[in-house]
Amino acid sequence: MDMKRDYYEDIRLLDSGPQVFWLIALIAALALFPFLAGSYHIYTVNLMAIHVIVALGLNLLVGYTGQISLGHAGFFAIGAYATLALMQNLGLPFLIALPLGGFISAGFGFLLGLPALRLEGPYLAIATLGFGLTITQILGRLDFLGGHMGLQSPALNIFGWTVDSDAGRYAVIMPICLFLAWGLRNLTKTRVGRAFVAIRDSDIAAECIGVNLTYYKTLAFAVSAFYTGIGGGLMAFVLGFISPHTFNIMVSIMFLAMVVVGGLGSVLGSVMGAVLITWLQLELARIGELPYLGPLLTELSKQVFTVSGLPNVQYVVFGLIMVLIIIFEPLGLYGFWIRTKIYWRTWPF
């Protein structure tokens, strides 16, 4: 059934006829989507696509290379601020400012990678957490970046076309997201990606077969920060306004949750985790509007969970869903996907 005859089959994107079909179907659906959906739904998908980009970058670091980061909101902020500053202060066009913002973020990733050479596990978690917190503090004090007041995103111009609708932003974000996902998937199938995984599974053995740990660990941080920075640059335009508070510690934790819930060390898992968590965040914020259940939960949260009097039941439900997914499928959503695939392979027997 799936006997391989050719080495190229190991690394090529599409393994079989059905996969070609599904990819074409997916691209067609994504292309038609902005014509069929309302503005709010397009906005939702834009957020999802940005989070997919970030989750891919973070998964490269955490899932593939085995280096934890609790500071990715810092790179997200650097990407967003750098893109806006390059456009406003230097007058660069968006299509140049965005990748430059990504590279600036990658530079910071490289710098954070240096102490990571000597730190592991919980120590690295604290170091990266400190990085994320420091970046927002520094940004709050830089007056030319708006300080605590934040920055207004300039008009988004691409070759004279002013992008001012959600559908327009979708047309910018989605191709970038697909391109970056494709790039990461390729990377994990070839030499550099394998070296990352080697570091995760046994850094001693990796060194002894010729993998330069210094180079590949810092490279993993840089690539991860590049993806996150690109995500940040795009986010500035979806939100229309950024301030240091946009990139708080919860953002870092959400990114990590996307990767863990989606599936560590999996491109598809990153996509699924980012989509699910973005959707949950948006939907659960409106949980109080549900018929019958909504008022009940709101009342419950007011009486039991809240300290300040604000309804916070959405966080409780969110946490519950995360815990359940991890308990029932430690491999995350990717694990569900693999099991479903195996189940249907032998269908209907």
Binding site: V197, R200, S202, I204, A206
Partner: peptide
């Protein structure tokens, strides 16, 4: 003590 890349 075998240092392989276990998940590959």
């Amino acid at each position: 003590n075998i240092e392989l890349f276990n998940k590959m």
